[in-house]
Design a protein around this nucleic acid. Structure first.
Lengths: 178, 178
DNA sequence: CTTACTGTACCGTCTGGACGGTCTTGTCAA
DNA sequence: TTGACAAGACCGTCCAGACGGTACAGTAAG
């Protein structure tokens, strides 16, 4: 599989995310990513033959990672904890991480809006599953949307909420989720 | 014979929003906007001397419009209705409107991420005001974030929620808001 | 010999923006 | 009323630069 330079692919992916976050979604050019990754443009194109493939990899990695984390949290979750509560906790953690986790999404949809469809279908899947596991639909809706709001704020690097407020929000949601 | 004079600006703004929505945020070129608006590129540049100015106008119009609507709803609001409830209703209405109301935001931040700052400061202003008017901070947080989630879903043209679910969500929020 | 690149040179396309010209409208003196 | 003229609103073309992508020769490791 991999060889000496080994993690070129990962480095490139990370570099792309960094560039998108730091210089803006519109400035995500192959040259910039290659420079940032410490890789030549030829090397980048070797790993990702096209820009679209790069974006696709970004999206797929992101979804797969979150999916795995969710699965892990689910099975490892304390018994008696509702799936909705698990979802809330995990999402809040992710949102709490180093601020601008996934602003490359903007670059991806700027490149091609169709990159939204896998994300949308993933979200719908998660939501549908939650719907089957949560007796109180109203609570589900409120909590799910609030988490979506949290995700959005962190995506836009918003500073409307203080740390205390974020924590209060999460505890309130867990209370609602029961 | 129409006065092509007056409404050129508005036509261009509307065209820009349309193009961003239909062909994606990455395809918002001056040529595309000019064509869509039925205006030459020179004419466009006459009204908006630079692409950044166009985006700025888009942002400012959007913010001003929402600000006015909020002010109007506030004064016209039924007595006894909390400001938070007014905010929820208005935001839900706006989100319910023709689907992809403001996806041009993506184009703007792709052009220059700094276009986010006026939006962020506007949001913070609104939130701070709401905070001063709402006794129950937990309710505020939950409702505000859920609305933000709703905004995000409509921004990404998400179809996770059905119409019924959206309505249930809003009524639940109003219940929480009291 | 193959894999995994590096480095450079290059091409075609698209885009923002500059520029000069053109048509319309308003103003005002004669 | 009319003709001259200025300003405003817009058109159409052109260009320099950036970008995605190609091609290819070279190289170091396994």
């Amino acid at each position: 599989m991999k060889a000496r330079r080994a993690n070129s692919r990962e480095k490139i992916l990370a570099a792309a995310a960094d560039v998108a976050r730091e210089t803006g979604p519109g400035s995500l050019s192959l040259d910039a990513v290659a420079n940032r990754a410490g890789v030549s443009k030829g090397g980048l194109l070797y790993n990702f033959p096209t820009k679209a493939k790069l974006m696709q990899a970004l999206v797929e990695d992101y979804l797969r990672e979150f999916g795995h984390a969710l699965e892990a949290a689910r099975t490892a979750g304390a018994s008696g904890e509702s799936p909705l509560a698990t979802y809330i906790k995990l999402s809040a953690e992710h949102a709490e991480e180093s601020k601008p986790s996934a602003s490359w999404i903007f670059s991806a949809i700027a490149e091609d809006p169709d990159f939204l469809t896998p994300i949308k279908s993933f979200r719908r899947q998660v939501f549908e599953r939650l719907k089957g596991e949560t007796p109180d639909l109203k609570a589900l809706l409120v909590c799910y949307l609030a988490i979506e709001g949290l995700r959005s704020m962190n995506l836009f690097d918003s500073d409307v909420l203080s740390v205390d407020e974020r924590q209060l929000l999460v505890s309130s949601l867990l209370e609602i989720a029961g």
